[in-house]
Design a protein around this nucleic acid. Structure first.
Length: 335
DNA sequence: TAACCGTGGAG
DNA sequence: TCTCCAAGGTT
């Protein structure tokens, strides 16, 4: 085993964080945690992981749940296509594969919601196969250890080749956890703890006294679209809320929302579709919500009346995305 | 293949 | 307030 891997493993064995999915690393629990951890921090994931494993102790339990139940538990975690793919994948495993996860990277890669990173993670952590996990943490560690200044994401392949070079033949599950934990806790994007790093002797950037915060180099991102619209919090005579389902594809797909106008790129909002109530609706304030690719501002209106949509009691609302929770918050507590 | 797809925290 | 970005995948 190379020196980088052995030093990293020695440190990890003494300092590993006791994460819930590590104690009992069954394929089901590893898979579930890895799907949740896609672009999501450990701290955010933990309560969701606990909820899911309590409600669905096995992949069969998850497969037999309703879509509504799964979406409800996922509420607030974001990237909702992950939840739909999670449910789809559970059904494949439970009903087509006799409850058994495939054990190789190539087979795992065919499952819904499982890409190159997650396939490698499951093969390594659940089945103890040799696989190289490649995520944002590992890219950053490789950039600094080898002082790679090639920009990402164009040169992802070069980073992966370096990561493969360092991957040990034994203790692969521990190593995969260890290198990501290094990136998450020591080799962090800003203010990395190089003084306490277990692999500083193997790190070119540290040894040549260069600035680790400058790495990895990333190509410029496209600016977000700025959009603006209006949302109407409409209550009937009983105080029940009118909600409608969003389209099955696209942003916040298939989730419930307060009725909104279209979103446009100007600062002026036309009450398209709500002309009839616009004159009587009361504007309560604005909310702003930043998505990955959209900077959205909504004018929040309230109105007493009726429309053609489903009503819900205030204390029994369906799963709402965070955007719509902000709308509700504004309606209940106007600025 | 580049665009799309949430949310919360750090600095 | 703004930028970055976190155990990425799909189309």
């Amino acid at each position: 085993m190379n020196k980088f891997a052995s030093q990293l493993l020695a440190h990890y064995k003494k300092n590993a964080r006791p994460l819930p999915w590590r104690a009992d690393a069954t394929p089901y629990r590893v898979w579930l945690s890895e799907i949740m951890l896609q672009q999501t921090t450990v701290k955010t994931v933990i309560p969701y992981f606990e909820k899911f494993t309590q409600q669905f102790p096995t992949v069969e339990d998850l497969a037999n749940a309703s879509e509504e139940e799964v979406m409800h538990l996922w509420q607030g975690l974001g990237y909702y296509s992950r939840a739909r793919n999670l449910h789809k994948c559970a059904k494949v495993i439970a009903f087509d594969k006799d409850g058994q996860f495939p054990t190789t990277e190539a087979e795992l890669l065919t499952l819904p919601g499982v890409g190159p990173y997650t396939a490698a993670a499951i093969a390594s952590m659940a089945f103890h196969q040799k696989a190289t996990v490649m995520d944002g943490n590992v890219e950053r560690v490789m950039a600094r250890v080898f002082n790679l200044t090639l920009p990402l994401p164009t040169h992802k392949k070069a980073f992966k080749e370096k990561a493969i070079e360092l991957t040990p033949n034994s203790e692969n599950a521990l190593y995969s956890n260890a290198i990501m934990e290094l990136g998450a806790t020591i080799c962090t994007p800003r203010k990395p703890a190089c003084e306490t790093c277990p692999v500083q002797s193997e790190c070119t950037t540290f040894q040549t006294n260069q600035n680790p915060e400058a790495l990895p180099v990333k190509e410029p991102k496209k600016p977000k679209k700025v959009e603006h619209g209006a949302v109407y919090v409409i209550q009937d005579q009983n105080g029940d809320f009118y909600l409608q389902k969003r389209p099955e594809k696209g942003l916040l797909a298939n989730l419930w929302e307060f009725p909104t106008t279209g979103w446009v790129g100007q600062s002026q909002t036309a009450p398209e579709g709500f002309e009839m109530i616009q004159s009587e609706a009361v504007m309560l304030g604005q909310i702003r919500h930043i998505f990955t690719h959209i900077d959205l501002t909504l004018d929040v209106f309230s109105y007493q009346g009726n429309m053609e949509a489903q009503t819900f009691q205030a204390d029994n609302l369906p799963p709402l995305p965070t955007l719509m929770k902000k709308v509700l918050q504004t309606a209940q507590n106007p600025a």
